[in-house]
């Protein structure tokens, strides 16, 4: 239990709280990098995902891509890019975006796919244009899954940012890395505690958000606890997209 107390003492030490290498500054850096990477990835992945989900074309490619990236070792990717592009934030940033895209893409297209075909036919029957179907039917109904994809992507990037400190990207991983170099386990443990806290907070925030965006009509009609869930409601509740990150 001593390591806990030591680490808390380390974290409470004013020396470790102030300046550009202080915990608040590094935390801000970590969050900023992660959000920026997810934002860039989202700009690319969401429109493509919607297109795949709406038309049903290119699905095989998207599934293969999502599965393939899961097998890709993040450490290897970050180190490889760092070796090619040099130490700094550019190389890790590219790695973050590459790693964030598949989850967001999967969230976007599976959200659209989860919409019952009958609902879309009904929308078309009452005279909605394709654009209206996308924005007023598929988008709101698929939103929980899209948020799920964004959440996996963000957690994936938060995890990778921790590793990227090894190649000079900054962020909270710097404490683990410095501690590792100087055999200072207290510092490593303190750093990992802050990283864990950040990840847990983000996970909780996103799961709340994911519940909030379920359209009222869907939430009202959702079976509470039946043994056999329909694929429709299961899809709306599913968090399985989250699997296979890190």
């Amino acid at each position: 239990m001593n390591v806990f107390l030591d680490s808390l003492a380390w974290l409470a030490d004013p020396v470790h709280l102030a300046g550009p290498n202080g915990v608040p500054a590094r935390l801000g850096e970590h969050v900023l990098y992660s959000l920026a990477a997810v934002a860039i990835a989202a700009v690319v992945a969401i429109p493509v995902g919607f297109l795949i989900g709406h038309t049903g074309r290119g699905r095989t490619v998207a599934v293969a891509l999502t599965g393939g990236v899961r097998a890709l070792p993040t450490v290897g990717l970050v180190f490889l890019l760092a070796l090619v592009l040099g130490i700094g934030i550019t190389a890790p940033m590219i790695a973050f975006v590459v790693l964030a895209i598949p989850s967001i893409l999967a969230g976007a297209y599976s959200g659209f796919e989860a919409v019952d075909r009958a609902t879309i036919d009904a929308a078309r029957a009452v005279g909605m244009t394709e654009w209206q179907i996308v924005t007023r039917v598929e988008l709101p109904l698929g939103l929980p899954l899209l948020i799920g994809g964004l959440r996996s992507a963000l957690l994936q990037v938060v995890a990778t940012t921790t590793i990227a400190a090894t190649v000079g990207a900054g962020g909270l991983g710097i404490y683990i890395f410095t501690g590792l170099r100087s055999n200072d386990y207290t510092q490593m443990f303190a750093g990992s505690l802050v990283v864990i806290a950040l990840a847990v907070v983000l996970e909780v925030l996103f799961s709340v958000l994911q519940r909030l965006v379920v359209p009222a009509g869907v939430a009202a009609g959702r079976p509470l606890d039946t043994r056999v869930t329909t694929s429709r409601s299961a899809a709306a509740k599913a968090t399985s997209l989250q699997e296979g990150t890190q």
Binding site: A159, T162, I163, G191, V195, I196, V200, E203, T245, Q246
Partner: peptide, 14 residues
Amino acid sequence: GLIYAIPSFALLVA
């Protein structure tokens, strides 16, 4: 879900 959300590097250290 929470355990899975923990970054691997931090978990291995902690």
